[in-house]
Design a binder for these strands. Structure first.
Lengths: 216, 216
DNA sequence: TAAAAAATTTAGACTTGTCTAAAAAATTTA
DNA sequence: TAAATTTTTTAGACAAGTCTAAATTTTTTA
């Protein structure tokens, strides 16, 4: 098996790969709160194990083997988050740190049984898809509410910012996964938006609108 | 917080302390599958942190602080074992290794909620007591079936040997926690015993009788 | 396109936890 | 109780993962 550090590198590289094909040393260092020199050392090890494609100064991509491991860690992270929210009743802004530890529990059988226990959830509490045991999941597209025009509507299906502060704010405003929203007005001055959510109108800044995602 | 290695040392010292007041370097080395020299190094660190009382060549005892940590790890281990058996339907001989990893998940709130989720179980799947959040548990005494005479009876309440092989054997014979047993015969020749368990008679060796415990 | 700036890698060092081999202390035994 | 044996500790080394500082490569910019 891989070390904890290796698993965290693979997971970060996977997430960064969603935005850029080649992931840079500095991006990884920032994501893992470490130094570029440390990243270079680890990249050599991961390349030796054939988990990444690495050419000096060129950035990295995951190999098929590396991506498989990354997706399995993400599967574990998201299933544990679902467990923490649905079974232990934590709030969606409280579970990330715990899941960061739990995602490294190694047993595959354990996670498959946990999946069954919860009746095979498709999304974690933040709307992110949960890969199945083979690493497959539907790559549905989401777009920010900021991209909507007046009178357009959608269902809240994800967040771009996973910080506790943002999640807490959304929770307080009842802007949670599954809620149906409609844009009733866009303020010219600052591009902030007024949304119709169930019976109430909610005013959100452009910043919030960019980080709150709806299904297309 | 403490490192994973430190937690494992404290836990081992706690378990060994149940048999001997002072725990020796070699005992710890054997329990942790490491070398005496490595143990000496770690004992110095734990003593510096005031988690153990350590005098060179004299063996160690846990301080109150060290015992508290050890009991919390044991609490986590046993609650996760209960979860794995009761909720995920693993067999009692399958859960130890998984719980060895899960016991190091740090959140106290998580384990308290898990405890509540399972309705505050008092014993793990092997009959061992689960400490509460303050490290308290009933210190009930158990004795081996080997200590019984003919016609005496009791309720299976624990095991002395936690190895998968022993647990699997017991499971197959229906010799599980909570079963009522009565000694119907003791064979002079090898001190093996014939037990009445529910409707059936089961013949167990002296070795088994020494490792299977009943409530006094 | 050459100089400046930024990104990345290398070199050497440090910490944690481990090891082997040798030394020292404690215990057993004759 | 002195010698032999066992246990424990010390000394020095190593691997993993990290760091700082310096060197190198790439990218940007003037």
């Amino acid at each position: 098996m891989n070390t904890l550090a290796e698993e965290n590198y693979l997971k970060s590289i996977y997430h960064l790969s969603l935005n850029d094909v080649n992931v840079s040393t500095n991006q990884i260092a920032a994501a893992l709160n470490t130094k570029a020199a440390s990243v270079t050392d680890m990249l050599k090890k991961l390349a030796d194990k054939a988990l990444i494609n690495y050419a000096k100064y060129q950035g990295v991509t995951l190999t098929a083997a590396g991506e498989k491991i990354a997706l399995h860690i993400i599967r574990k992270h998201r299933l544990w988050e679902y467990f923490l929210v649905e079974k232990l009743h934590f709030k969606w802004d409280e579970v990330h740190e715990m899941a960061e530890e739990m995602e490294h529990i190694s047993s595959i059988e354990l996670i498959d049984r946990l999946d069954k226990f919860m009746d095979y959830p498709k999304h974690d509490p933040h709307g992110d898809p949960i890969p199945d045991r083979n690493g497959n999941f539907k790559k549905y597209e989401l777009k920010p509410i900021a991209a909507l025009n007046v009178n357009e509507n959608g269902i809240i299906s994800g967040v771009r910012d996973h910080s506790p502060a943002f999640l807490q704010y959304l929770g307080k405003q009842q802007l949670t996964i599954g809620k149906k929203i409609k844009v009733t007005e866009i303020i010219d001055y600052d591009l902030s938006m007024i949304l119709q959510v169930e019976q109430t109108e909610i005013h959100i800044s452009r910043e919030v609108a960019k980080n709150l995602l709806i299904a297309i």
